[in-house]
């Protein structure tokens, strides 16, 4: 009998990544609808210190698998441990984040458990008729949404798009159990090895983690003009995004590319400058909370998904916007000073 909801906590470099709290909020809502327990699994070394915070943010049970060999994410040992744990605990639902880690480990575990997996869900709910998981995700480049079920196989597995849920605030009164699991040595054997990790400074502002993204397209005309986008982004404390054209021209690196062949983002604010809004680009940003577009062409597709549009020459509008935002900032500082 499969019961309860399990989320896979995300550990990066020995720290619990905050996307775990988003998963806890998702998992809590589903567990409450099912009147079942929510558990959270954390793999790594010296991770027990995070258990209390995980319970405060919604978990009833925390499974800690502690081993120095789990310090870094490696597919083989992570798959062995998670597959074994899922077989022991038998959750009816397993969720992980749709990050490079989650999108790698979940297909591996799903294949080992011979069950279904839905990628990159933006909506999760329980079907009141049969208590099954309704997994909703953008399909065909975000032009339609598809709701997917796993009727006969258990557990029902899904990865959840980061930034699609607000974490619950920590409730110090919540209580839960911490279960330390240990396994025999051969569970941790691996045929992959992390030789080294190089932190990439240019990825410090991850477009997918950013609350605000300022994006530019070919309409900027030159690399020098693209600096305008960077200046505006820094004023907003935003990440810089770009269309495929701009990345192909080499103005910015691939990690900044938004769209079908790049990253999908849904920030609180998306500012689109000098880009017309190809279907491919729209697919990567149309779920943003608020969209602002500035473009010369009143018929540009980008205005169809925008909340606020300015038809005009961006070489006039953007410098004016930068100027006024600076004034506003200084004015604020003066008032506060």
């Amino acid at each position: 009998m499969y019961r309860g909801v399990m989320i896979i906590g995300e550990q990066r470099g020995g720290e619990l990544h905050p996307v775990t709290y988003e998963l806890l909020a998702r998992g809590r809502a589903l567990a409450d609808k099912l009147s079942e327990e929510l558990s959270c699994v954390v793999l790594g070394h010296d991770m027990e210190r995070f258990a209390e915070g995980i319970i405060q943010r919604g978990a009833d049970v925390v499974y800690i698998v502690d081993n120095p060999l789990l310090r870094n994410f490696l597919p083989r040992p992570y798959t062995s441990v998670l597959t074994r744990l899922a077989k022991e605990v038998k959750p009816e639902i397993v969720l992980a984040a749709a990050t490079t880690q989650g999108r790698t480990i979940m297909p591996l575990v799903a294949a080992k458990l011979d069950t279904g997996l839905t990628a990159d869900c933006t909506g999760l709910d329980i079907d009141p008729l049969d208590r099954s998981l309704l997994q909703t995700r953008p399909a065909i480049g975000g032009n339609v949404m598809a709701t997917i079920k796993t009727p006969a196989s258990r557990p029902q597995m899904a990865t959840v798009r980061p930034k699609s849920t607000k974490p619950l605030s920590a409730d110090k009164a919540r209580s839960g159990r911490v279960v330390l699991k240990s396994y025999e040595k051969d569970m941790f054997t691996t045929c992959e090895e992390l030789v080294r990790f190089v932190k990439d400074a240019t990825q410090d502002v991850n477009v997918q983690d950013a609350d605000i993204v300022v994006s530019g397209g070919k309409g900027l005309k030159t690399r020098d003009n693209f600096c305008m986008i960077e200046e505006l982004a820094s004023l907003f404390g935003a990440a810089v995004g770009a269309t495929r054209d701009v990345v192909d021209l080499g103005w910015v690196g691939y990690p900044h590319q938004i769209g079908l062949s790049g990253k999908t983002v849904s920030p609180k604010l998306y500012i689109a400058l000098g880009l017309s809004g190809s279907v491919q680009h729209l697919a990567g940003m149309q779920t943003s909370e608020t969209i602002v577009a500035i473009n010369k062409d009143p018929d540009a597709q980008i205005f169809k998904v925008a909340d606020f549009g300015i038809v005009g020459d961006l070489f006039d509008v953007v410098p004016e916007l930068i100027e006024k935002l600076k004034e506003r900032k200084n004015g604020k500082l003066r008032r506060e000073g």
Binding site: A139, N143, T147, I148, V305
Partner: peptide, 13 residues
């Protein structure tokens, strides 16, 4: 194991 049970257009405009 998976089945698409519903397809719908997101509110775009």
């Amino acid at each position: 194991p998976t089945r698409v049970v519903k397809v719908f257009r997101p509110r775009l405009s």
